[in-house]
């Protein structure tokens, strides 16, 4: 299609380039601005006088003696102990991804190889579950979890996130396994392997691209979750996102919005790194579902 487009008139090229440029600005400016502003004091980030103060750090220079300050980061990580939330996030995300993928590869493989009516029915049910707003499920957990003393612990949140993740993981891995030729495990079975041995020795070695892509999306779901972690974790077990929400409640009055800004930038950094390294996988993962319809 590029050959046909090479002959575009200049006006079309200029117009479309300008549009893309505008989009790039809209998509990136909030991040750049917040990153830059997180090293200033509140008087600059929220400037009563002139928004350009945030660029030059006018108030920051007056208040701290330098145009950049790490006060926000110091306040968030040391004073408010944001590192605890970071460790909790690490635990929750790590186990959610590992367990999701283990369950998901087994289930997705079975769904891809069965082709029976009930396998299709299960996929449809998974689609309905995928559409459930997470907060409606949380309202179902809350009372029983209180009663059984399961509320507030990290493992509870992990297993809930795994379950909420399953419908999506199943769909995605199911479509990846459909792309792996059936002959591969069929011939292993002809050679005398059981279904599980065929899975273990033939499928597992070739499934990693699909698993890594699905793992990325499980990571994003667990990392970005607010509904589950904010309702099901006690204060000392809070992960980063509910901790940031907590900052807002406690710091707005004290005039320490900059703690929240610094925490927000800190929590965004891993996502940047993730996209930088796995851009190709994320793009292919987003389109995998679409191609299969």
């Amino acid at each position: 299609m590029s050959s046909a487009l090479d002959r575009s008139p200049r006006s079309v090229i200029i117009l479309s380039s300008a549009f893309v440029l505008l989009w790039v600005a809209v998509a990136s400016f909030p991040f750049i601005w917040t990153l830059w502003g997180s090293f200033k004091v509140q008087g600059d980030f929220f400037s009563k006088a002139d928004w350009r103060n945030a660029l030059w750090g006018t108030r920051t220079l007056i208040e701290t003696g330098s145009t950049f300050t790490g006060a926000g980061y110091d306040g968030a990580w040391v004073q408010e102990e944001f590192w605890r939330a970071a460790i909790n996030t690490l635990i929750v995300v790590f186990f959610t991804v590992i367990i999701s993928l283990t369950f998901g590869t087994l289930g997705g493989y079975a769904l891809a190889r069965s082709g029976r009516k009930y396998a299709f029915g299960l996929l449809m049910i998974a689609l309905v579950f995928r559409a459930m707003p997470h907060i409606t499920l949380v309202s179902g957990y809350l009372l029983p979890f209180f009663e059984w003393n399961l509320w507030g612990h990290l493992p509870t949140s992990i297993i809930v996130l795994v379950a909420i993740n399953q419908p999506f993981t199943l769909w995605m891995l199911h479509s990846f396994f459909l792309n792996i030729p059936k002959d591969l495990d069929e011939s292993a079975k002809v050679d005398g392997c059981t279904q599980f041995q065929a899975f273990r020795h033939v499928i597992i070695p070739v499934m990693w691209p699909g698993v890594i892509t699905t793992g990325l999306f499980s990571f994003l779901l667990a990392y970005n979750d607010f509904a589950v972690t904010s309702m099901l974790l006690s204060e000392e077990n809070r992960t980063m996102v509910p901790a940031i929400a907590g900052f807002l409640g406690s710091t707005l009055e004290e005039g320490n919005v900059m703690f929240a800004v610094a925490a927000v930038v800190s929590a965004t950094a891993p996502l940047f790194v993730l996209v930088m390294f796995f851009q190709r996988q994320i793009v292919s993962g987003l389109t995998a579902g679409a191609v299969k319809g």
């Binding site: 079975a110 769904l111 998974a126 579950f129 499920l137 795994v162 379950a163 399953q166 993981t169």
Partner: peptide
């Protein structure tokens, strides 16, 4: 075989998606 492969995933979904929906209705 299908049943054993799908079991962990299905159990997670029944326990933490289907039952909570029942719990919501009861509540």
């Amino acid at each position: 075989t299908f049943f054993w492969f799908i079991l962990p995933s299905l159990a997670a979904m029944i326990l933490f998606i289907a039952l909570p929906l029942v719990s919501v209705v009861v509540q």
